[in-house]
């Protein structure tokens, strides 16, 4: 499974999301690779099963084959855990 965390520039929010998603996956015992990317890269690659993004970005990710999950609070491991496990299990 491939997960891509997305933000506008691909250096800030997406990287934090990626790190916290990896933490959550370890806790849940789930296997997936997580990458961080900007919107254009994420739209071009099209090979992720799941895209993680903050709500403002979600609109820019429509029309792709991936499931798009909005995360409100990038540091809320509980929220990420709940939403990721729902999508993956």
């Amino acid at each position: 499974m491939k997960i891509v965390a997305v933000c506008g520039a691909g250096i800030g929010t997406s990287v934090l999301l990626k790190m916290n998603a990896e933490k959550v996956l370890r806790t849940l015992g789930l296997e997936a690779t997580v990458e961080a990317a900007d919107i254009e890269t994420a739209r071009a690659s099209r090979d992720a099963q799941i895209l993680l993004a903050t709500p403002e970005i979600v609109d820019k990710l429509q029309g792709l084959p991936s499931e798009v999950i909005a995360i409100d609070h990038v540091f809320d491991l509980g929220e990420i855990s709940e939403k990721l496990s729902k999508a993956m299990l």
Binding site: C7, T13, L16, E56, K60, F75
Partner: peptide, 14 residues
């Protein structure tokens, strides 16, 4: 410009 274009997504936590 990034915020004007994409909205306030840089507000990453309360």
């Amino acid at each position: 410009a990034n915020i004007n274009e994409l909205g306030p997504y840089v507000v990453i936590a309360p």
